[in-house]
Design a binder for these strands. Structure first.
Lengths: 110, 110
DNA sequence: ATTGTTCATCGCAAATGTACGATGAAACTA
DNA sequence: TAGTTTCATCGTACATTTGCGATGAACAAT
């Protein structure tokens, strides 16, 4: 890639919000997160029964959510328990709601 | 791609939320949206002064936001005014907040 | 020791995303 | 008519994402 933009640094908040949003940017991952946040508690590869995807693909999606900091995996042999990473989940919640909180009482010209 | 999953249909809400999230999944697009929602009103390619990107690249990001339904473009020769698509913006707001609204008073086992 | 279960990772293929410069379209101005 | 400004789109290059099957690691139970 030629990208002269390659070393530009976006602000922390912007970069983090984009990172969270990117992790949420696939329906399978939305389903996983909904499951985990409904499920009072943790979870495992019962996800395979909910998602139309191969085991290896689900594993990859889980990895991406983990890398984004939205979930935590905990080994519980022979299974793995996943759950929401509460701290970052709240952070994401705040970042998203501050993005959307804008005051639309101002006249919108379009 | 081989994807046996190719014709699977995720629920409308899930698919839409993922689509919005995907559009938010790049820092340049976050900046654009913040700009538009601060800016009481509409906006144009002054974005070029804010973003470390070429004009054509910014134009592409605007197109993606338009395709996701988050913004609207209005020709105002020789410029183009962009603004938040209020209806979908509120929809996105609701979808995100319902994703995050879960009750964490339940014991979290991790 | 062997087998079974659960999950991660590797290797591959195809699709998408990101970025740039160049070119083109639309509309105003001289 | 010719020139200017503003923006979209095209073509190109490379990176990343998505998906699968195959293989491997870790552990429990026979």
């Amino acid at each position: 890639m030629k990208r002269s933009a390659k070393d530009f640094n976006y602000s922390d908040d912007t970069a983090l919000l984009a990172k969270f949003a990117k992790a949420l940017g696939h329906p399978a991952r939305i389903i996983i997160l909904k499951h985990l946040s409904n499920q009072s508690c943790c979870f495992t590869g019962d996800l395979l029964e909910v998602l139309p995807l191969a085991q290896s693909t689900v594993s990859q999606h889980l990895k991406e959510l983990k890398d984004a900091g939205l979930i935590i995996g905990e080994v519980d042999p022979p299974k793995v328990k996943y759950c929401i990473n509460t701290e970052n989940w709240l952070l994401a919640q705040n970042l998203f709601s501050s993005l959307f909180k804008e005051d639309f009482s101002k006249i919108n010209c379009c």
